[in-house]
Simulated assay, not measured.
Amino acid sequence: MLDLIASLLADKELDCRLDHPITEARAAFNRAIAEKKTGPIKRLLVEDAVLVTGTDSGVISGRDAQVEVWRADFAQAGRFVYVRTPRCVLPSEEEPIVTELGTWVGKPEKADGSEVRGDYTAKWREVEGKWKLEAEIFTTVKSRDALAL
């Protein structure tokens, strides 16, 4: 799916790039997930941030609600660690906002060969000189269960 989106973007000659400050913000979010730290996650979200989950399209509305979901996730035994990898960053020519397109993968903290992966899109906004997430939509495209191998 992401290849299709990328080819459509190329046809429109949009400025699809990775040399933007949100790539470092995304890396900080990934580190926070890996290190089980909710503080950095909270700082990267606007107050009314929205997340749509990849498999069941559950909606998590608000920064505090998202932080609570991460806090509960970090406490679980056998939790998955998620890494989001930007593939395309599209700055707006009109507003201090950016669209990020990428892929994500989740693997158990204690590797067992299982994984889940997919595509995502995110909307970032510059707020007082810092880039913050306003919205993320995830799509699960593949999962591999170690027991099924």
Score class of each variant (00 low, 15 high):
R144E: 05
R71V: 00
A122L: 08
L147N: 07
L4E: 10
S57R: 13
A49R: 03
S7F: 00
R31Y: 01
K142F: 03
S61Q: 05
G118R: 03
R63D: 04
E100F: 01
K12M: 09
G58A: 15
V59G: 13
L45N: 01
K42I: 00
V69E: 14
D73Q: 13
R26W: 03
D64K: 02
V67A: 13
C88D: 02
A122I: 00
D73V: 00
D19S: 15
R63W: 01
I60K: 13
D15R: 01
E13R: 15
P86K: 14
S143C: 12
T99L: 15
D15Y: 05
K142V: 00
G78A: 15
A111I: 04
I5P: 01
D19Q: 12
Y120V: 10
A6E: 06
V98N: 11
I5S: 05
T103Q: 02
R79A: 03
A146F: 06
R79N: 03
N30Q: 04
E115H: 11
E13H: 14
D112F: 10
T121W: 08
A32D: 00
V98R: 12
G106N: 01
K107M: 13
I41Q: 01
A148H: 02
D64C: 07
D48Y: 09
R79W: 04
K37R: 14
G54E: 01
D64M: 05
P91L: 07
A135P: 01
I137D: 06
R26F: 01
L2V: 09
A111L: 11
E126I: 06
T23S: 15
L8N: 10
L101K: 10
R117Q: 08
V52P: 00
I97R: 05
E95P: 00
E94T: 05
L18H: 08
H20K: 13
A25N: 07
K142C: 07
K42W: 02
E100V: 04
E128F: 07
D56F: 13
L4Y: 09
I22M: 13
A27E: 08
R26P: 02
R43L: 05
E126S: 12
Y82F: 14
Y120Q: 03
W70M: 13
E24C: 08
T140R: 10
C16W: 07
G39R: 11
E94D: 14
G78P: 00
E134V: 03
R26K: 15
K142G: 12
S114K: 02
H20I: 04
S114A: 08
A122G: 09
E68M: 14
A77R: 09
L90F: 07
A6I: 06
V141D: 11
V98S: 12
E134T: 00
V141E: 13
Y120F: 15
I97L: 08
I137K: 09
